[in-house]
Simulated scan of single mutants.
Amino acid sequence: MSFQVQPSLPTLLPALRNWFDSELGQELLQRERALLDRVLPGLFGMELVQFSVDSRVKLWESSPVQHCFAIAPQLELGMDEAQLVALSHEVPLTHESMDVVLLHHALDFTPAPHQVLREASRILRPGGHLVVIGFNPLSLWSPRRLCRNRRQTPPWCGHFLSHRRLSDWLKLLELTELKHLSGYYLPPFDNQRWRARCRWLERYERGGVGHYGAFSLVLARKDIAGMTPIRSGWGLRRLINIPVAKPTARGQMRENR
């Protein structure tokens, strides 16, 4: 399975950070946070880890998980204690140790996105949840990727994985997809005035029409094979009362003797 050849992540990081600092990048992050605020509060546990390409971005503010930290691709100045420096496709975490794994564009900027997803599944506990955020190829942002002068610049050099491909990978890893959401339906104009003229497209986002936003959010759960969920009492049959013979008067007289 081949992917678009892109520069190494250490080479991309400075330009990628600058893009996230732009007005367009900040608007995208704002929409991603808003969509995560609808998903993360319902995911409980003790440990949450975020795979991110920008160590400054922390998206777990709305999570009820007690211990949250991030995995950064390289050591940088100003990093706090809640960060671990490691490659996203070689994570030094034990098997089934995380309750929630959040991939923030980690599959877009890596030479082996399927290996990153496999690592995320490996460290996820049974019953834990996986949240994947990535650029959507079925959006108004895709035509801009076709420009030759932008194929090697972030974020347009990202893989932009389709939902169908991601769903196939989740099935192979025995992960059950629960939700598929999308956000930010505006075109990627650098000029804010041009983006403001296209605000009418946001009604499709509010109406939930299709999955054509600039980014996609997929929520999956790691189920345990062989387990059967317990049904509520409404669907269970009532127990049959077996009649028991009452003691006779002769039996009571014998006991009294």
Rank of each mutant, 00 (worst) to 15 (best):
V5H: 08
K171G: 05
T11K: 10
P154D: 07
L13W: 01
L13Y: 00
G183P: 00
D37T: 12
Y212M: 08
V57E: 11
G251W: 13
P143F: 09
P247W: 04
P111N: 02
E96Y: 10
C147M: 14
G183C: 12
R145C: 12
F69I: 04
I240S: 15
E205D: 13
D223K: 08
R254D: 06
L175H: 01
G251C: 07
D99W: 02
R193C: 11
S22W: 09
L59S: 06
E27L: 10
M79V: 03
Q192D: 09
E177V: 14
T176G: 02
H129P: 01
Y184E: 14
D190P: 08
L28M: 13
N191K: 07
H89G: 00
G226N: 06
L172F: 09
P155H: 06
L130M: 14
E90A: 12
E119M: 04
E90M: 11
H211K: 14
L24E: 00
F109Y: 14
Q66T: 10
T228S: 14
S62T: 13
T11L: 14
L107A: 02
E177N: 09
T228F: 11
D223R: 13
P73N: 15
Q74R: 13
I123S: 07
Y204A: 10
P41W: 09
R38H: 13
H105V: 03
S121Y: 01
Y184C: 12
E202Q: 15
K222P: 01
A249I: 15
G25R: 06
P7C: 06
N256M: 15
P92G: 04
Q83V: 13
S139D: 05
P243I: 10
H211Y: 08
Q83T: 15
R199E: 10
A72D: 09
A214R: 04
R199H: 08
N18Q: 13
L93G: 05
E23V: 05
L36P: 00
S8V: 04
S97P: 03
A196C: 08
H211I: 04
G251M: 15
R122E: 03
E205R: 09
C147N: 12
T228R: 12
F160K: 02
L186I: 05
V209H: 15
L219T: 09
V91W: 07
L87K: 11
P7F: 02
C157M: 07
R165W: 11
G78R: 06
V116E: 01
M98V: 13
E47S: 05
M46I: 08
L117K: 02
I224A: 12
V39M: 08
G128K: 04
V57T: 12
A214I: 02
E27P: 02
E47L: 06
P243K: 12
E205I: 00
T228G: 07
V65L: 06
E202S: 12
V5D: 13
R122H: 07
H129I: 00
S162K: 04
G25C: 04
I240E: 15
H89Q: 15
P187Q: 09
S2C: 05
P73V: 06
R203V: 11
S142A: 11
L161A: 03
A72P: 02
K179C: 09
S22V: 11
